[in-house]
C-alpha cells in the first residue's frame, strides 16, 4: 500500500473514531480516574470490552503471521513515561484521544492541553539530544540490555515461537483475565445497586413509620421498586 493510501485509511479510521467517541462521551481518563475516585465504571467497562476484542483479533492474526504488530524495545522508560503520562492526563482531564475530540467540540482547554503536549514533546526532544536515551528505533537490538535499562522486545509472536503454542491460546488466556475483571466490576455494580436500593427502602420505611403507617416497610420497599422500574 502506498503512502497516500495509508494516510487516507488512517484518516477514515480516525474520523469514525472521532465520531463514535464524541457521540458516546467515552474517555480513557474517566475509565481510570472515575474507577479510582468515584467507583463508577461506565468507561472502564468499555475499555475492557475493547481490549478483549482486540486481544482475540490481534493474536488470531499473529498466529498465522499476519498483521503489523508494533516493534520496538521496551524498558524502564516505558514504565516511567506512562507514569508521567498517567499523572498528566488526569491533571489535564483529557488523554491523547479526548484532547482531539474535545477540541473538535470547541473546548479551548483541550486545545491548550494539546498545545502543551506538543511543547512537552519538543522539550523532551532537546533533552534526548543530550542523553540519547531511550535508544532511537534504529539502534534497538531486540534483546535485553541492562546497562541501557532495556528489556528488549517480546510479544505474542515471540511466545508462539518459543513455546510452539499458537499465539491465540495466550490471547484467549489474556481475554479470560480481562473478562474476569469485567465480571468483577459488574458484580460490584450490582452489589452497589442493591445496597443503595436497601438504603432507600430503609429510609422510605423510616419516613412512613414516622408518619404512623403500620405497613410502612412493604410500602417503602414497593415505592422504591416502582421508582426504579419507572
Amino acid at each position: 500500500m502506498n503512502a497516500t493510501a495509508q494516510c487516507l485509511t488512517a484518516f477514515v479510521f480516525g474520523s469514525v473514531v472521532g465520531l463514535l467517541v464524541q457521540r458516546s462521551r467515552y474517555c480513557n481518563v474517566a475509565a481510570l480516574r472515575d474507577a479510582m475516585l468515584f467507583k463508577t465504571y461506565r468507561n472502564t467497562k468499555a475499555l475492557l470490552v475493547a481490549m478483549m476484542i482486540l486481544t482475540l483479533g490481534f493474536t488470531a492474526f499473529i498466529t498465522v503471521g499476519a498483521g503489523k504488530p508494533m516493534h520496538f524495545d521496551v524498558g524502564l522508560n516505558t514504565f516511567a513515561g506512562l507514569f508521567l503520562f498517567g499523572i498528566g492526563m488526569v491533571l489535564a482531564g483529557a488523554c491523547t484521544v479526548s484532547t482531539w475530540v474535545k477540541a473538535g467540540e470547541g473546548n479551548i482547554g483541550a486545545i491548550w492541553a494539546l498545545m502543551f503536549t506538543f511543547i512537552g514533546m519538543f522539550l523532551f526532544s532537546l533533552l534526548w539530544s543530550f542523553i540519547y536515551w531511550p535508544p532511537a528505533p534504529d539502534t534497538m537490538t531486540g534483546v535485553h540490555n541492562l546497562a541501557g535499562l532495556q528489556l528488549g522486545f517480546a510479544n505474542a509472536a515471540t511466545l508462539q515461537e518459543k513455546t510452539h503454542v499458537p499465539a491465540i491460546v495466550f490471547g484467549a488466556v489474556q481475554t479470560l483475565v480481562l473478562f474476569g475483571i469485567y465480571r468483577a466490576i459488574l458484580r460490584r455494580e450490582r452489589a452497589g445497586a442493591r445496597t443503595s436500593e436497601a438504603a432507600a427502602a430503609r429510609e422510605s420505611a423510616a419516613c412512613d413509620a414516622w408518619a404512623g403507617n403500620e405497613t410502612a416497610v412493604p410500602q417503602g420497599a414497593a415505592r422504591v421498586a416502582a421508582e426504579q422500574s419507572a
Partner: peptide
C-alpha cells in the same frame, strides 16, 4: 493543571515511545 498535564503527557509519550492508546 491543564498546562502541567499537557506537558507531562508530551514528555511521557516521548520517554516511553508510546501513548495511552498504543498501551490499551
Amino acid at each position: 493543571m491543564i498546562t502541567i498535564g499537557g506537558l507531562l503527557m508530551g514528555i511521557g509519550i516521548r520517554l516511553a515511545f508510546v501513548c495511552n492508546v498504543s498501551t490499551f
